Amino acid sequence: MVSAEGEGRLLEGAEAKQAIACVRAKYMVPGALAGIERAWGPIDDVCLVVTPERWRSWTGTLLEEAAVKELGDDYERAWLPDD
């Protein structure tokens, strides 16, 4: 798990669209970009930009161990499916 602290800026309009396009281009295959823009573009018009000043990370091991202790074998069944 990770947490970032810093300054945040809300982008809207053309500036947001440009930032969103950069993120998509970094993480998606080129052949999918046009279809994703058609599908998400009409509603994906705001972007939050965080300039991190401090990072924190931690492991979820203690949380998982405590949950397994309480729930036992039911821990894995406690989660809703991804779909």
Results as ranks from 00 to 15, higher is better:
Ala66Glu: 10
Ala34Trp: 06
Cys22Gly: 12
Glu64Asp: 15
Glu64Met: 11
Leu33Asn: 09
Gly72Lys: 07
Ala4Ile: 00
Gly41Leu: 04
Ala66Met: 00
Arg77Ile: 03
Leu48Gly: 06
Glu70Ala: 15
Glu37Phe: 06
Val49Cys: 02
Glu5Arg: 09
Val2Gln: 14
Ala16Pro: 09
Gly8Cys: 09
Glu15Ala: 11
Lys69Thr: 08
Gly8Ile: 13
Glu15Met: 04
Asp74Gly: 01
Arg56Cys: 03
Ala21Ser: 10
Gly35Cys: 08
Leu11Pro: 10
Leu11Val: 04
Glu5Ala: 11
Lys69Tyr: 03
Ala19Val: 01
Arg9Asn: 10
Ala32Asp: 13
Pro81Gln: 08
Glu64Arg: 13
Pro42Arg: 02
Ala14Phe: 03
Asp73Thr: 11
Glu65Pro: 00
Lys17Thr: 15
Glu70Ile: 01
Met1Lys: 06
Gly35Glu: 12
Gly13Tyr: 07
Glu64Ile: 11
Pro52Ala: 13
Val23Ala: 11
Glu12Lys: 09
Lys69Met: 01
Met1Glu: 13
Lys17Val: 13
Asp73Ser: 15
Thr51Ile: 00
Leu33Phe: 12
Leu63His: 07
Lys69Ser: 08
Leu62His: 04
Glu65Tyr: 00
Ala19Arg: 11
Ala16Phe: 06
Arg9Cys: 05
Leu10Trp: 11
Ser3Trp: 07
Glu12Met: 10
Val50Pro: 00
Ala78Arg: 14
Arg54Asp: 06
Gly13Leu: 02
Gly31Met: 06
Asp83His: 07
Trp55Ala: 04
Glu5Gly: 13
Leu10Thr: 10
Asp83Gln: 09
Leu11Cys: 11
Pro81Asn: 05
Ala32Asn: 14
Leu48Phe: 08
Arg54Met: 07
Thr51Val: 10
Trp40His: 12
Ile43Asn: 12
Gly72His: 05
Trp58Arg: 06
Lys17Ala: 15
Arg54Ala: 15
Val68Ile: 11
Ile36Glu: 15
Glu76Cys: 02
Glu70Leu: 12
Gly60Tyr: 02
Glu7Ile: 00
Cys47Asp: 10
Gly13Ser: 04
Leu62Pro: 03
Val50Ala: 02
Glu12Cys: 04
Ala19Ser: 10
Gln18Thr: 13
Glu5Ile: 08
Thr51Ala: 12
Glu37Ile: 02
Gly35Arg: 10
Cys47Lys: 06
Cys22Trp: 05
Glu76Leu: 07
Thr59Ile: 01
Ala39Thr: 11
Tyr27Cys: 04
Gly8Ser: 07
Val29Tyr: 03
Trp58Ile: 07
Ala34Arg: 12
Val2His: 12
Asp82Pro: 09
Val49Met: 01
Glu12Leu: 08
Val50Trp: 04
Arg38Ala: 12
Glu37His: 14
Arg24Tyr: 14
Thr59Glu: 02
Asp82Asn: 14
Arg54Glu: 07
Ala16Gly: 06
Glu37Val: 02
Ala14Asp: 14
Glu53Phe: 00
Tyr27Lys: 13
Met28Asp: 13
Asp73Val: 01
Glu5Ser: 09
Met1Asn: 07
Ala19Ile: 01
Ala66Pro: 02
Ala66His: 05
Trp55Ile: 06
Ile20Met: 06
Arg9Glu: 14
Val2Cys: 08
Cys47Arg: 05
Pro81Phe: 01
